[in-house]
Amino acid sequence: MNAQATAPLAADLTFDLADQPLRDLNAALHKAGVETNARRWHVLNPNGRHAVAVGINAPLEIEIAGHVGYYCAGMNQQARVTIQGNAGVGVAENMMGGFVHVKGDASQAAGATAHGGMLLIDGNAGARCGISMKGVDIIVKGSIGHMSAFMGQAGSLIVFGDAGDALGDSLYEAKLFVRGAVKSLGADCIEKDMRDEHKALLAEKLAAAGLAGTVDVSEFKRYGSARRLYNFHIDNVDAY
């Protein structure tokens, strides 16, 4: 393993994808905790590679110095992963726990089907952000694209900017908070009252992401499922 230590993170281990195979990086991350005490990892030259730092089940801190391709930090369980750039499709897909921070923008399906943990995106996220989310908390400081939170089952999607068309289509029990404009709502998604308990929940999620006090929670609107499509009824056929 490349032992060079470089800024900005004083890493215990540095892994340069320009010289070393991705397969070795992921295998080493999977063994971390068993074969090494290194807790801070610095990944250089990702250059848009797919499947960087996937399936990590150890409390590691991983900083990726650049842009990544599809599925970065997929199925993450415990790691804290920071991407110093943009992320491709499906960043933190099916995440179970931990914290994934995209410093740039994220492409489509960010946080797709994720069961837990937190995904923080400093920039914008593309279409289908939080699609089929199952318990993850996703915070997007910019705006999100169309069909976001489609079939969202649980967790919260918090958007500082705007949302595209068909937000929350066929939504189950995921909670959506949007500060800006929503272009349109999807089938069975409605605006709901933003009561104190929801403001408290929103504040709690922001604090967990280190964003306490950065925005006024009363500026957000809440969206959720009307639960009209939970059991099929012929009178709702136009909604299907």
Binding site: L22, R23, N26, H50, A51, V54, G55, G69, Y70, Y71, G74, M75, V89, G90, E93, Q108, A109, A112, T113, R128, I131, S132, F150, M151, S170, Y172, Y230, N231, F232
Partner: peptide
Amino acid sequence: IDQRSACRHPDWTGPDDLEIKIEELREL
């Protein structure tokens, strides 16, 4: 509730994406 599963995968479309998805599962 009546559960209706999606007919398409949520985080990829088409064979080019499938190749990347398979790579992810292998890396995992």
